[in-house]
């Protein structure tokens, strides 16, 4: 087994770290711990939460809300952001609704077109696209300002979407660009003020948006599939459901050529803790855990990078993050070898 420490040593140029896994397995905590670790190594680190519901603030027990990159108090080199998409979504909507209104300039119709336009631009999924957009933004723009960016990619569904998106998004984008170009050339063709329309067309904000998105997308795709710069870490618990999720996930990610950094096993009940008392709870749990760990070893063995023990307290506050970061690199359950 290659430990996390060994892996990181072998990949000194890692710049983009993603964490994924089933909901509730401790992704955000792991992401925070990884970021903390990089920061203490003297690397300028950014921790970005792409969750629709953020929890960085509660994990670090300080206010990181607002969608701005903020320094994490108490750690040098570490900055964090709870990414907000409101502005992107609003801009997007305004942009589209302006385009649509243009077409209705001469429309003398018995209905108010605004609610129609509104409904056309109301879409909960815009937020997801916007989140993806923000992630691309960060990968492209914050590259210089930071040595390492750690993304917490939210619940597995979102992460799947994020990764899935990166494949079909390209298809969708190129079709959008094509349609837009066709639309614009039709406009010029059907205009009597060709030069004026040509000017407008050249400045078309929608096409500009799409093109820049496409450009960023291509850059990001390259970064995402670059094994020396990018690594996806999957977090699991020694439980059946999270394990199968991670397995499915790894298959999928590999299919998209996204480099897998490894599996981090969270919530390990240490033998000493389990045997310190004779409660059925911990004993049974420990027994059960052995079984699941066996599965992990069998199915994901070479991918496992580290273990994080189960703590008696919820991981909240800077010092606990520090503990997790430390354990993540050094804790090794004594029974792993024997499984």
């Amino acid at each position: 087994m290659t430990t996390l420490e060994q892996f990181l040593r072998a990949h000194p140029d890692l710049r983009f770290i993603f964490t994924g896994g089933k909901g509730g397995v401790g992704k955000t905590v792991t992401a925070a711990a990884l970021a903390y670790f990089f920061a203490t190594q003297g690397k300028r680190t950014l921790l970005a939460s792409l969750n629709p519901v953020h929890s960085l603030s509660s994990i670090f027990a300080q206010d990181l809300t607002g969608g701005e990159i903020k320094p994490v108090k108490g750690v040098n080199n570490l900055q964090a952001v709870e990414v907000e998409t409101k502005d992107v979504v609003a801009r997007y909507r305004e942009n589209i609704s302006r385009r649509v209104r243009e077409f209705l300039k001469w429309a003398d119709i018995p209905v108010d077109p605004r609610p129609f336009v509104d409904i056309a631009v109301t879409n909960p999924a815009f937020e997801e696209s916007a989140m993806f957009d923000k992630m691309m933004d960060m990968m492209v723009q914050e590259k210089e300002a930071f040595d390492v960016i750690v993304f917490d990619t939210a619940a597995v569904a979102n992460a799947v979407r994020l990764i899935g998106l990166s494949k079909i998004y390209g298809l969708w984008l190129s079709r959008m660009i094509e349609s837009r170009k066709e639309a614009l050339s039709l406009r010029v063709q059907l205009a009597f003020r060709k030069d004026k329309v040509m000017e407008e067309v050249k400045k078309d904000p929608l096409l500009a948006d799409l093109l820049s998105m496409n450009e960023r997308f291509n850059q990001v795709k390259e970064l995402l599939t670059n094994g020396t710069q990018t690594a996806f870490f999957f977090v699991t618990l020694p439980l059946a459901l999270p394990i199968s999720v991670v397995k499915r996930f790894i298959t999928m990610v590999s299919a998209y050529d996204i480099p897998v950094g490894g599996v981090l096993v969270n919530g390990i009940l240490d033998r000493k803790v389990a045997e310190a008392s004779d409660e059925e709870y911990l004993r049974n749990k420990f027994e059960e855990q052995l079984g699941y760990l066996q599965t992990i070893k069998q199915d994901l063995g070479p991918m496992v990078r580290s273990f994080i023990p189960l703590y008696p307290q919820e991981v909240v506050g800077l010092h606990t993050v520090a503990t997790v970061a430390n354990d993540m690199l050094h804790y090794m359950p004594d029974f792993w070898e024997d499984l």
Binding site: R99, V117, M176, L206
Partner: peptide, 26 residues
């Protein structure tokens, strides 16, 4: 017919608007 046309524009915008390169609803 013209009124119909503009209403149809509205209709098409919110059904197949992305055919015009305008990314609209699912």
């Amino acid at each position: 017919l013209r009124t119909r046309m503009y209403l149809e524009h509205l209709f098409m915008f919110i059904t197949l608007g992305d055919m015009l390169g305008i990314p609209v609803l699912p």
